[in-house]
Amino acid sequence: MGRCAGNRDLRGWIERLTERNGFCALPVVVGKSQPLAFRRWSPGEPLKSGVWNIKIPKAGENVRPNIVIAPVLGFDSYCFRLGYGGGYFDRTLATLSPKPRILGVGYACTEITTIYPQPHDIAMDMMVTEAGVSLPHKE
C-alpha cells in the first residue's frame, strides 16, 4: 500500500468541536499490552512526546470517550481495520462499556478485500475517507 492523496489532519475539526462546547481526548499509551487512556485536550494546550514520539497532552484529566476516531493503515468492507500494530485500539475498545461509536479515518485507496479479522478484532461503526463514509457491509 503506497501513500494516497488526501489529508487526515483533524485539527480543524477539533477546533470546530470545541467552539461548539464539545471536547477532544487524545489516546495515551499507559504501558505495553495495556488499554489506552484518553486524556482531555484542547487546541493550544501543550503537548509532549509519548510512546513512538506521538504527541500527547502534557496535562489533562482522563475521560471515557463516547466516540473514538481510529487511524487505519487499511480497512475492509466490513469495517475491520488494519492498525499500526500492538493491538492498543482493540484492547481498549474491549474494555469500554458501553462501547463508544468507532470511526475509522484513512484513505480510500487503502481498502483491501479482507484484513482476516481475528476473534479479538472489533469492527468500526463506519469508515471515513476522502471519498466519503462507508458503513459495514452486511452479509
Rank of each mutant, 00 (worst) to 15 (best):
M126E: 15
P35C: 04
I112G: 00
H120D: 06
I102G: 09
R39D: 06
V72M: 15
F89W: 11
T114M: 04
K32W: 09
T129D: 05
A59P: 00
R64F: 08
T129A: 09
A108M: 03
V68H: 11
E139M: 08
V29P: 05
T114D: 08
F23D: 12
Q34Y: 07
R11N: 14
K32A: 14
M1L: 14
D121A: 08
K55Q: 13
F75T: 07
G104I: 08
S77D: 12
Y88H: 14
D90F: 05
A94V: 06
L96G: 09
E61P: 01
M124V: 00
R91E: 10
V128D: 01
P46H: 00
P119L: 04
D76N: 08
R16C: 06
C109W: 02
I115Y: 02
T95H: 04
E19A: 15
F75Q: 06
K99V: 04
G86W: 04
I14G: 10
S97M: 06
P35E: 07
A94G: 10
R16W: 07
G2N: 11
V105D: 01
V133P: 05
N62E: 15
L47P: 06
D125L: 05
S97V: 10
G132H: 07
D76S: 07
D90Y: 06
T95G: 03
A108N: 13
L47M: 14
S42H: 15
G106Q: 02
G106H: 08
E45D: 15
T18A: 12
A94E: 05
G6D: 11
Y116E: 11
W13R: 03
G106V: 08
Y116R: 14
G85C: 09
M127R: 01
P119C: 07
M124R: 04
P27Y: 03
N7E: 05
G2D: 13
P136M: 03
V28T: 04
P119Y: 03
R16T: 09
L103P: 01
R64Y: 06
K48F: 00
I67P: 01
D125H: 14
G44A: 11
I14W: 13
G83L: 10
A94N: 07
S134V: 00
C79N: 05
T113R: 13
P43C: 10
Y84L: 04
C79D: 03
G132W: 11
M1C: 10
E139P: 15
C24G: 07
S97W: 01
P100H: 09
D76R: 02
A94T: 11
T92S: 13
P65R: 07
Y84E: 07
S134H: 11
Y88A: 06
G132Q: 07
S134C: 12
P100Q: 12
L82M: 15
P35H: 08
R101P: 00
H120P: 01
E130F: 04
G31F: 00
L93F: 06
T92N: 06
K48Q: 14
R91H: 01
G83T: 02
G44P: 10
T110K: 08
Y107K: 06
L96S: 09
D125W: 09
G12N: 04
Q34H: 13
G2K: 12
F89E: 09
P98K: 00
G83F: 12
T18Q: 14
E45A: 12
I69W: 05
L73M: 15
N21P: 00
